[in-house]
């Protein structure tokens, strides 16, 4: 299968902290790739580097054949990023937020409007389109946060813990959306702490700890390491690999 993303030996330190320490992996077309790890493992730092925001100290990345070293402009047209923290303008409506960021990815006003309407439908907020995001519940804000990343119809979508702090209904809605997007041809990098989420959603999973990938494979592969894949849970694998001690 063709790789949409290839990351090779990524390194990033903040002062003395090696946040990411030699991470390599690739994501195939139409793959949902899970990045699983405890707090402070380096998931967000990895995503920030892969989404052109943070220059790595060392290592190389290419997306759809465009190496970052040749400039990040072509890459930015291919990616959509949903950051871990909400990144929205609270005083503006959902519609205005979507249209603005859509415009920033190069859509014309008309395109952005049309795409926003479509996206609002997809994230189940069509009836609240005109309300200020400030007045939304946590789950609704999360959905807008994802919606913005979808505006450019990216080929590769980065979702950094998109389901934190939301109810099962909203979470389910997000799962459905992600699966739907893959069916439409999108590739996804998905980070989470929720094992059952990764188990259900991801084609392959990388477990990252202390800035390094310590295991990589399908959910079944990973479970197989501990015993019968039908009886072992991903959580058991995770705790086995990363240990029980508290992080951060």
């Amino acid at each position: 299968m063709l790789a949409i993303l290839e990351a090779e030996e990524l390194h990033k330190s903040f002062g003395d902290t090696a946040a990411v320490n030699g991470v390599s992996f690739s994501i195939s077309e139409r793959e949902i790739f899970g990045l699983l790890g405890p707090n402070g493992a380096g998931k967000t730092t990895t995503i920030r580097m892969l989404s052109t925001v943070l220059p790595p100290d060392a290592g190389s990345v290419s997306i759809a054949g465009h190496a970052f070293s040749d400039g990040t402009a072509p890459v930015r047209q291919l990616i959509g990023v949903c950051p871990q923290e909400l990144a929205l303008y609270p005083e503006l409506s959902a519609d205005e937020n979507l249209i603005f960021f859509g415009r920033m990815t190069g859509l014309s006003r008309a395109q952005a409007k049309e795409r926003a309407a479509e996206t609002l439908q997809r994230i189940g907020l069509a009836d609240r389109a005109g309300d200020a995001v400030r007045t939304f519940s946590g789950g609704m804000k999360r959905r807008v946060n994802i919606g913005i990343a979808l505006m450019s119809r990216p080929r590769l979508l980065f979702l950094d813990e998109p389901t934190v702090g939301i109810d099962p209904q909203s979470r389910n809605h997000i799962f459905e959306t992600v699966l739907q997007l893959r069916a439409e041809g999108m590739s996804v990098l998905y980070t989470t702490h929720y094992m059952e989420e990764a188990d259900r959603l991801c084609d392959r999973i990388a477990i990252i700890d202390g800035g390094s990938i310590i295991a990589l494979g399908t959910a079944a592969d990973l479970k197989g390491r501990l015993g019968d894949p039908t009886r072992v849970t991903l959580e058991e694998v995770f705790l086995d690999l990363t240990g029980q001690s508290l992080r951060d």
């Binding site: 930015r76 950051p83 923290e85 303008y89 190069g106």
Partner: peptide, 13 residues
Amino acid sequence: RLGTLERLMTTRL
């Protein structure tokens, strides 16, 4: 602070 700057950096702006 809002995180929108980082978001803007992933667009074509």
